[in-house]
Write a protein that binds this DNA or RNA. Structure first.
Length: 294
DNA sequence: CGCCATTAGTGGG
DNA sequence: CCCACTAATGGCG
């Protein structure tokens, strides 16, 4: 189908250069979110996109692991509420102490993290060398940033907006030295977006650069298992600041390592998506995608 | 009831 | 001052 298969091959997810599948999915999600009152059918949507219903069906299933109908089900408010329901995590979880995300679920992205202290990054990343590159992902083009201590940033850009994403990220550590190095970041991209690469044997090293409060919030996000979600207020309670849910939201919004630190798994108490730094549509896509793999 | 819109309280940066 | 929150309140089918 696509002759230009790149380094990330043989996966069920959309890893085609340019993230073509995601582009289709993004449009569908946008349409559904706008017209959710009058439930456009598969035919209508396909028509709008200039695709055949079967073609759309195929693209969808390849991307999400779900039929469009099931996907629609997976991104409703109702489903989001289900993600929030039940299941309290033990407050002191062993895997958390080890810095692993999630209690041993087979297909989860295992992460070891290290916090960079305020003193170290306060200078705006002075002395820090950050290598970066863009790569296709199931959620559009992703910008991956690494230091010699591990992964430091993951961002997303729609077609043609790469520069914006880069500026957004580099503004966070204005004094760091930025070096383009696609070769180095490609390995990370592959690890991050292909579930087949997720394994506890070979944890992904992440360096979290933020304030104490932010780090606490991000660590809490890392404990939310794949395919689940928590409300901002749950997270606030868990870090011992039950009234700070709004501040939690702000901290989550500053998470520099999107997707890896699963900020898309934070929802409003009602199940509403409420916001996402790289666009609520992308958040909806991530939750739907996880629903298809969970 | 249920679904908005508005408001006040809130804590971190 | 800004903000990816939330519970309470009041209006309107």
């Amino acid at each position: 189908m696509n002759a230009l298969f790149d380094t990330i091959s043989e996966s069920a997810v959309d890893v085609t250069p340019g993230g073509h599948d995601y582009e289709t999915v993004r449009k569908v999600i946008t349409m559904l979110s706008e017209d959710y009152r009058d439930q456009p059918g598969l035919e209508t949507i396909a028509g709008e996109l200039g695709m055949s219903p079967t073609g759309l069906q195929k693209t969808f299933t390849r991307w999400a692991g779900l039929s469009p109908k099931a996907f629609l089900q997976a991104i409703t408010l109702d489903h989001a509420k289900t993600l929030l329901g039940r299941e309290q995590l033990p407050l002191l979880d062993t895997s958390y102490e080890l810095g692993l995300s999630g209690p041993g679920r087979l297909h989860d992205l295992f992460v070891t993290h290290e916090a960079m202290s305020p003193g170290e990054w306060k200078s705006g990343g002075e002395g820090l060398v950050i290598r970066h590159g863009f790569h296709p992902s199931p959620f559009g083009r992703s910008l991956v940033m690494i230091t010699d201590r591990g992964l430091a940033g993951v961002a997303f850009a729609d077609e043609g907006k790469e520069q914006t994403a880069f500026e957004d990220m580099s503004a966070r550590w204005p004094k760091a030295r930025y070096v383009e190095d696609q070769q180095a970041t490609a390995a990370y991209a592959k690890r991050i977006f292909d579930p087949a690469e997720w394994s506890s044997d070979r944890p992904l090293k992440v360096v979290l650069i933020g304030t104490d409060f932010q780090i606490k919030v991000w660590e809490t996000l890392l404990k939310i298992p794949f395919g689940k979600a928590k409300s901002y207020s749950d997270i606030a309670a868990e870090i011992g600041c039950p009234k700070a849910s709004r501040a939690v939201g702000a901290a989550i919004g500053r998470n520099p390592v999107s997707f890896v630190v699963p900020c898309h798994r934070a929802l409003g108490k009602s199940g509403a998506l409420t916001g996402y730094h790289w666009g609520v549509t992308r958040k909806r896509a991530m939750l739907g995608w996880e629903a298809g793999k969970a």
